[in-house]
Nucleic acid binder design. Structure first.
Lengths: 157, 157
DNA sequence: ATAATTGCAAAGTCTTTGCAGTTTG
DNA sequence: CAAACTGCAAAGACTTTGCAATTAT
């Protein structure tokens, strides 16, 4: 999803900030020995400009293809993989169906409703006490982006 | 996986108890309007007699096929589905790779190591405080069997 | 130059489904 | 007997991979 808002309708500092983060991500790819291509730039831009926190590879492909029709889904998968290795995005398996990706700087966890499939985000700090307990108890360090809890949401309860 | 220990080497009350639970599960299938077939009996037996808490459909098929070579994998999937609907087993997506199933009366959660793939089980009560917080905060009722936390285990840290 | 990336098509993994024949209640 | 279940084969959903051509550095 590309933000359709024309640049001059957005607050300038927001624009600059997002641009900076896009450039930073691309720079990481380069530092890793990778190349920055049109496809990769479009994919990264879509991730930062999209309004959806959770996107599937297919979502990204669709958004990118609006401008660059021949960016292939497999390229999206490969780029997302690279970005995951560089800790720019996190990949989350929310049960059956495609995996979703989100930027790692959006620290949160996922409550997935078994009945309606709704995904509720909860702020990362909600699980801090649990994470501390797990670390003390079993020496397991929870990733700040990969907690998934199934259950029933308020309306399906 | 079938328990290879001959019945007379096991404590009798354990044997009886497991048998009872197997019968109870089969009875649930019947009450639901289903039939109890050789395949289903073998699958349920394998779940209760297996020593592994987490089994994939393929695991179950392999175990069952040791005695009943022509029970098909698709039958295992269908039976596991039926048992899940009846809340006898829970299906858990532990990331990429096949889903794992476990009996619901074994209440626990899963810590999956991103590096080595190890699955650590933690008792269900560890997350009770978190579950209470989530319910109060967003009205989400966590399923007692479906929490998955990714991170790094003690040795991969 | 040369190593990385791309599009495409094909294969891979895990799971579901249609169907005709078999079995259960 | 009617309805449910089964094996099989085929399809489906999602993801990865091999390869020759293209492109970034």
């Amino acid at each position: 999803m590309i933000d359709p808002t024309p640049a001059h309708h957005r607050a300038p500092h927001v624009h600059d900030d997002v641009d900076q983060r896009i450039d930073a991500a691309l720079e990481l790819l380069r530092e890793d020995g990778g190349r920055v291509t049109t496809a990769r730039r479009a994919i990264v831009t879509s991730l930062y400009r999209g309004q959806d926190h959770h996107v599937t590879a297919e979502d990204v492909a669709a958004a990118v293809q609006a401008q660059h029709p021949d960016v292939h889904l497999s390229t999206v998968y490969r780029t997302l993989d690279a970005l995951e290795r560089l800790a720019v995005v996190a990949k989350v398996d929310l049960g059956p169906g495609p995996a979703v990706y989100h930027l790692v700087d959006h620290v949160h966890h996922h409550l997935v409703c078994d009945r309606c499939g709704t995904v509720i985000e909860v702020p990362g700090k909600v699980i801090e006490p649990l994470a501390a307990a797990l670390e003390a108890r079993v020496g397991f360090v929870a990733s700040p982006h990969r907690l998934t809890i199934s259950g029933l949401c308020r309306s399906c309860r």
